[in-house]
Every structure is written in C-alpha cells, then in structure tokens.
Amino acid sequence: MDETRRDRDAEGRAHNARPRDGLGRPLPYGTPGVERQPEGVVRTPAETVREAQRLLDAGMPFHAHEVFEDAWKSGPEAERELWRGLAQLAVGLTHAARGNVTGGARLLRRGAAALTEFAGVGGAAETAAATTVYGIGIGALTGWARELAARVEDAGAPAVDAAAEAPRLQPDDG
C-alpha cells in the first residue's frame, strides 16, 4: 500500500490501518504489530475496567485508553468525565513510556484532576482516599498519577516501563 495515501473506511472516514506496537506507535506497513482494539464497543462499566486493566497489565496503555474512550463516548453524560480522566491517565502512561516526559506528566495530572473532580472530592485526603467509583480507587489512582508525573519529570529518571508502572484500577482485585 502507498504509505503516503490515507487509509479510509467504507464511508470515506480516515482510518489508519498501519500496524502498531504495544505503545500504539505506528509501524511500517507489512510489519507485524499487536492486535488493535476494536472501536465503538459498548461494554458495561465492569467489563470496561476489566479489559482496560488487562491491557494496562500487559504494558499496553494506549490500547487501554481506547477501551476507556469507548466508555466515554457511549456511556451516560454524567460519567463522561470519569472515563475521559481514565483515558487521559492511560495516554499519560503511554507518553511517559515513549519518553515524552512533558506530554506524559501533563496528561497524568489532567487525568488525575478529572477523576478528583468527578468523584467530588474537593481536597479532604481521607475522603479522596476512600472514594470508589465502579470499584476504582479514585484516591489511590490519582496519587499514582501525580507521583508518576513527578517522577518522570525528574532529570535523569529512568525510562518508564508501562507494564511495571501499570496502576491497579481496583485496589482489591489483586
């Protein structure tokens, strides 16, 4: 396929068919990549969290972001900020693992802020730590994101291993 031509779906919308690596980076056509997440899948919140955790644990936060994005786009309006915040955390981890310190830290903090706002925890540390939504430990997750953001910005910090840094969305799930 001509690499300068944009891939299009049956309706003519842009669709990138290039293979991607585990961090979502495009690979040359014909190179084996990881299987892409199907788009537009409607899942229950429990299915969303379970699938995203599987992908995070596998070191594939870019793909986990796509799962969260589906929930953000298909879920109720009142939950959009939750799923969008989770997607931003996954993309932040993706950028940090790719070596994009500035983008990674920015998205980790933006996602943490969205989750804190969604949970309605205005600053009381004990309330934030105890808040869960669909079993997701909001306090632990926002703490993880802020700590990782600070660590990746530290000059001389080692490269981020996406699988090793994957957060536990539900602290009690192992």
Rank of each mutant, 00 (worst) to 15 (best):
P38Q: 06
V121L: 05
Q37D: 00
V91H: 06
L107A: 04
P32Y: 05
A155D: 13
W72I: 04
T142S: 08
P167I: 09
V91K: 06
A97M: 10
E39H: 09
P38H: 04
A166V: 12
A162E: 00
L107H: 11
S74G: 00
D7V: 06
R36A: 13
A17K: 05
R18Q: 15
V152N: 14
P26W: 04
G111N: 07
P158F: 04
T131K: 15
R106E: 03
E126V: 13
R20D: 10
P171W: 06
E77Q: 15
P76K: 06
E81F: 02
V133C: 06
A97D: 12
F118Q: 15
E39W: 09
D7L: 09
F68H: 14
R109H: 07
E47H: 01
D21I: 04
R168A: 14
E69R: 01
G122Q: 07
T48N: 10
R13A: 11
I138M: 04
G139H: 11
G139L: 14
A129E: 12
G30E: 11
A150P: 02
A145L: 02
L23E: 04
G99R: 01
P158R: 09
A164W: 03
V34W: 12
A164K: 04
V101Y: 09
R36Y: 00
D2P: 13
W144G: 12
E126N: 11
T102G: 02
E147H: 07
E81D: 07
E153C: 11
V41N: 01
V101L: 10
R25I: 08
G85V: 13
A149W: 04
E117S: 10
E126P: 07
D173Q: 09
